[in-house]
Structure formats: C-alpha cells, structure tokens
C-alpha cells in the first residue's frame, strides 16, 4: 500500500519536473543553449500567482497572468540576452544564463526578500483515492501538465506552426529558405516554455504556500540533469526522465534496504536533490548519449 502511495507521489512530482523541463528542452533543441535562468521564470510565475490571487481573489486569473508575464519575460530574455550572443561559443550563453538567474533572484528579493504566501490559499481540497489522501492541488498539477504538454505535442505534430517549429529545430537554414520566420519561431518557443515553467511555479506554490527568491534553485539544476538524462533535446526522453526521476526520488528518500545486519538508507546518505545527479552519472556511464537519443 505504501509502495502505491510512493509511486503516486513520485508521478505527481514528476509532472512538475515535466512542466519545467519541457521549456528547457525546447530552448536547447532550438538554440543549443543550457537555459539556467529558466528556473527564475518558475519563481516569477509563483510570485505572480500568489500576488494576483491575493489582490483579485481569482486563482484562474492569477494562473493566466503568471503564464503571460513569464512568457513575455522569456521572450525578452531571448531578445536581450541570448540573441546578441548566439554567434559566440555555447559557454558564453551558459555564463550569461547563470548570471541572469542570479540577477533575477536578487530582483525578487527587491520585491519581497521574505517570500510571499497566499492569504487564502486556493485549491486546498483533498481527494480520498484507494485509501490515500491526495492533495487536490497535486492532482490538478498532474492533469494540467498532461493536458498542456499533450496539447503542445499535438500542436507540433498537426499544425503549420508546428511543422515550421520542427523544421527550424532540425534544419534552421533550410527552414529559413522555405520562408519560415525562424525568429518568430524562437519567440513562440520562449513564450511557451516560460509559460509552462510559470504554471509549475504557481502549482508548487499551492502545496508549499511559500514562494521565495530562491524557490527556483533546486529546480534549475535538477531540470538540467533531467534534460541531459533525456538525451538533450529529445522531448519523449525528457518526459520519461521526469517521471522516472520523480518515482526514483520518492522511493530512494524514504526506503531502507537491508544489507546483512545493517540497513542501508539512501535518504540518509545523500540529499533528495543529489539523487538526480547520481542517477545521471550512472546513466552516462552506461549510455553516454543519455537514456534516449534524438531521432
């Protein structure tokens, strides 16, 4: 029974990773940039979600506002930070991205150094399911993630924009010669990826009721580990890595394995947040190309 509960918790956490990692994979696939500052948009989403909910009382409005604000912020980041240095080696963009991440954290601190909380936290119900009490907010997060990411997949597969998008990812020069506006594709890319991170930020704030300037920290480097695991740029691989990591963390942090007379508890040996990297090291030793190679 506990195993089932852990599996469920792992999958629920995995859906948050998915919301964040999708944007990161999109950016990497398109520009070959490790967009560390992506996690700051997760935090930004959280701040907007809490503040707008507190001001207006409408959570839906807050969620939409968070998506739009973070989406636009993502486009601005592309225009002001990445576009001018695209012709430079990739590490330049990486350094710029880390710098931007720190700068944005300090920006949040200017707004509210102690972090923000909901006055009346929305979506606080619980659900009894197979003998378990689950937080409604987490279930909603799971389905929101499935719907948004599934919708994105459909968009990429079925629409003209999607075709242009995929063409730009695989062969930017060829796509441009066929009349695709690759700059526009990049803007859309940053908007969608950032908006998804904002959704994750808002949904996480529902269960913690605390958004701090450093809220994005853990997610930023963990999401990087996830997209490397997933094979850098492979959407399917990234999604599988997200849920696999969520489940792995759930079991590894709480379960002890008897080894002879002693109990080996992984949770005592390493931090929950280190597990992603241990997993990454092991996978890279066996499969240097990541779990899933880009098709």
């Amino acid at each position: 029974m506990t195993e089932l509960a852990l599996l469920v918790q792992g999958l629920l956490d995995g859906s948050i990773y998915a919301l964040i990692a999708v944007g990161l994979t999109l950016v990497y696939g398109l520009l070959r940039i490790l967009h560390v500052a992506h996690a700051a948009l997760f935090t930004l989403g959280g701040y907007v979600g809490v503040v707008v909910t507190n001001e207006t009382g409408s959570f839906i409005l807050a969620l939409v506002a968070a998506m739009i604000v973070a989406g636009i912020a993502g486009m601005i980041i592309y225009r002001l930070v990445y576009q001018p240095i695209l012709h430079l080696p990739p590490y330049v963009a990486l350094i710029a991205s880390i710098g931007l991440f720190i700068a944005m954290q300090e920006g949040f601190r200017f707004y509210d150094e102690q972090g923000v909380s909901y006055v009346n936290p929305p979506v606080q119900g619980t659900l009894e399911l197979a003998g378990q009490t689950l937080q409604l907010a987490k279930i909603v997060t799971f389905f929101v993630a499935i719907i948004l990411i599934g919708g994105l997949g459909l968009l990429a597969a079925k629409t003209r924009t999607g075709v242009a998008w995929r063409a730009t990812v695989t062969m930017p020069a060829m796509a441009e010669s066929f009349g695709i506006n690759i700059i526009q594709v990049r803007y859309i890319n940053f908007f969608i990826g950032s908006a998804l991170a904002a959704v994750a930020g808002v949904m996480v704030s529902l269960t913690t009721n605390l958004v701090e300037p450093t809220s994005g920290d853990v997610w930023s480097y963990k999401a990087l580990a996830i997209i490397v695991l997933g094979g850098l740029g492979s959407m399917r691989g990234t999604l599988i890595a997200c849920f696999a990591l969520g489940v792995l963390e759930a079991f590894a942090t709480t379960t002890c394995v008897p080894l002879g007379n002693i109990q080996i508890c992984l949770g005592e040996i390493m931090n929950r947040d280190a597990i992603a990297f241990a997993f990454l090291v092991i996978v890279l030793m066996i499969r240097p190309q990541g779990l899933f190679v880009r098709a």
């Binding site: 506990t2 509960a5 853990v218 963390e249 942090t253």
Partner: peptide, 20 residues
C-alpha cells in the same frame, strides 16, 4: 526517521510513509 535537505519544500513521499 526520515531526513530532508534544507532546499526541500515538497514532502509528498515522506508524508506517504509517515502516514503508514
């Protein structure tokens, strides 16, 4: 006994075990 790191804000798995 369960341990968590200072950056943790999500306690789903630990709580599932505590409940049991």
């Amino acid at each position: 006994e369960y341990e968590y790191s200072i950056k943790n804000r999500q306690f789903g798995p630990i709580i599932a075990k505590v409940k049991a």
